[in-house]
Amino acid sequence: MELLFLLGSIIWNTVISLALSLLLPFRLLLRWLLPSDDDGGLTLYEGVVWHERRRPVHHSFQYNVRSLLTIPPSVGYEQNPLSLYYCYELEDSTASLKKCIAEVTNTPWGERVTFVFDPSSDVVAKALHVSPFMDMQGSWKMKATAPGRDLSVVISVQHPDLGEHFCAVLRAQRVSSSNAPDQMFFFWLMPHKVAVWIYWHALKLWWKSVSFVQHPRYSYPAYREEAVSLDKKLNCCKAGVYGTSGVCLREDKDVVGHQFSWTDAKWPWS
């Protein structure tokens, strides 16, 4: 059922996107005849996303991406693995980046987890099944710079058996306002390109005989509670002071945690 739904959704989204793409010239003409300043406050970025899987087999690729710290829908289709929201502290008219909110969405299920992390460097328990070729063990090591002329986001997966076996990096530059194109064309088919890269490289991993990992909701429904428990352990003892039984010996009671919030998948993935 799920495979049939996936194939059907690909065909449906292809037809809808093709039809809406044919209407783009008319929308552009309408915006030229009736100009507005709705997009004046948006900052656009253009850069490269690089993925590297080191173990159990080596596999890497990169692709160009256009974003405004999220990838908006284009011609009826949405595909946005990661959105970041930046939280600043104002002091004497000076803004300093204090926290980031990450919104991670998996493909094709469409589940979502949102959490807070320290952009300077943080370790977050893995709280979402993001790939059918990765298990739920381990944690995400995350780092992000404040958006300016340039921005970067680095996420690596730390696994208890495989070590730091996966890394994803985004490096982007701000698009000059004088050169910024119309957003409909700037983001045209961007979600589709991301989806193609995801599915194509999933097929290549399968071809390389990387083990397929079933969604944990079938084999271990309590995986979210397990992620919260692991995250508390990571936060209460960031200095790494544990006893032989795994009990935290130095607890930081001021640590709030990453405040996970999940959004369930919709039918038929639910």
Rank of each mutant, 00 (worst) to 15 (best):
V124M: 05
S139M: 04
L162K: 13
A144I: 05
F133C: 02
V169T: 11
F166T: 08
V123A: 11
M136S: 04
V153M: 02
P160G: 09
C167R: 09
I155A: 08
V157G: 00
K141V: 10
S152M: 06
H165C: 14
A125G: 12
M142Q: 10
H129N: 08
M136H: 05
S152T: 09
L162C: 09
Q173D: 13
D135G: 10
W140D: 09
L170G: 07
K143M: 13
S139Q: 13
M136I: 05
I155Q: 06
H159E: 06
R171T: 15
M136T: 08
A172F: 15
V175D: 14
A172R: 14
R174C: 15
A146D: 01
A146G: 00
V123T: 13
S131D: 08
D150E: 15
V123D: 03
W140L: 11
S131T: 04
G148A: 12
L162P: 09
F166R: 01
R171F: 12
Q137P: 05
P132K: 04
L151Q: 00
A125C: 03
L162M: 13
Q158H: 14
R149Y: 06
V123F: 03
A127Q: 04
K126Y: 07
Q137S: 14
V154H: 12
L128D: 04
S139Y: 13
I155H: 04
H129G: 06
R149V: 06
K143I: 06
V124R: 10
F133N: 02
V123E: 15
T145K: 04
G138C: 09
A172I: 13
V157F: 00
Q158D: 14
K141R: 12
A127C: 14
A144F: 08
V153P: 03
F166I: 02
L170T: 08
